[in-house]
Design a protein around this nucleic acid. Structure first.
Lengths: 165, 165
DNA sequence: CTAAGTGCAAATGTTTTGCAGAATC
DNA sequence: GATTCTGCAAAACATTTGCACTTAG
């Protein structure tokens, strides 16, 4: 009888954002809509600059300014739709939070690749630690840095050439 | 017979830094010395600005410029003497790495307090995860954000005044 | 209609850098 | 004595903000 009335289960990111905005007396604008669509069109990690790049040079009515991109990113994080997972080259790196399973990252310091991994024990341990300290945990950010499989070994890249002197 | 010759066990931060510098053809200068002393004089967390504040307005020969503070902090991190553990108000927060046991932090988003905690399982889990992915882990940074004990509960601060209407 | 949002350009705040003179090995 | 450092002022960045105009509700 009701499609999605009281419970907002399986709400789209747009709907979720809408909800957030309404409760704050804010408005759903064309620009905010465009940004959410763009951001949730793929699951890639991204930074503000990349998004600005994609949105600020459009010539049609789907162009969004740099300021608005930054402003909206902040709001999306606050709304729980995005989360900032790392910092690379001085820029904050974002990814989907809403509707995406909890996980952390291995970050290759050489090629910059982000490898996602999930380990439920980590969450449990943190819950326990927080409880012991009377700390109310809200979120965590775990960046594991090192070298990915590819960047680990030396250039085993020239396989055929006989370099035995 | 030897005080600390071959093995550099229990080397002071200064000695450790010296060693790092030498292997790179860099020099131990008065300024670098001052910075290391200042940084290792206490175990507090700090950011670049605080250090600049302390060192750049001295009038005597122990003054160090802003640029040098930033340059040296970068080197100390690279040398493994410091590690950057979090980011607060747009600034990187540092702490001792050398000679200080591994640990992570609970960060209160209200008052900014950093609570250290140690949990050996976390390291083990990360080692395991990294191994599975062929990733060579070098370091990790775990920031748990939320509310500390103090900031958790409402202002139970006005206890005596009878505000029962 | 009125409060909230946008784009622009300018500001902010941190960290970096070019360069001339100073200091280390 | 040559090479590396320092301090300074300026630059480089990412991100934020003031303001006049536009737009959603």
């Amino acid at each position: 009888m009701s499609e999605l009335t009281a419970l907002n289960v399986a709400a789209t990111p747009i709907e979720k954002f809408q909800e957030f905005l309404v409760t704050r007396g804010m408005r759903m604008t064309r620009e905010r809509n465009i940004i959410v669509e763009e951001v949730f069109a793929s699951h890639e990690h991204f930074d503000a600059e990349q998004l600005v790049e994609q949105l600020s040079r459009r010539r049609d009515s789907r162009r969004v300014s740099r300021s608005t991109v930054f402003r909206t990113l902040r709001q999306l994080v606050e709304a729980g739709l995005l989360r900032s997972v790392a910092r690379q080259d001085g820029r904050e790196v974002y990814e989907h939070d809403y509707g995406y399973p909890q996980h952390d990252h291995l970050i290759c310091r050489k090629c910059g690749t982000l490898i996602e991994f999930h380990n439920s024990q980590i969450r449990d341990i943190l819950e326990e630690v927080a409880r012991e300290r009377g700390f109310r945990m809200e979120a965590h950010r775990l960046e594991v840095t090192g070298l990915c499989d590819n960047c680990c070994r030396p250039p085993a890249s020239r396989p055929k050439k006989l370099n035995l002197l």
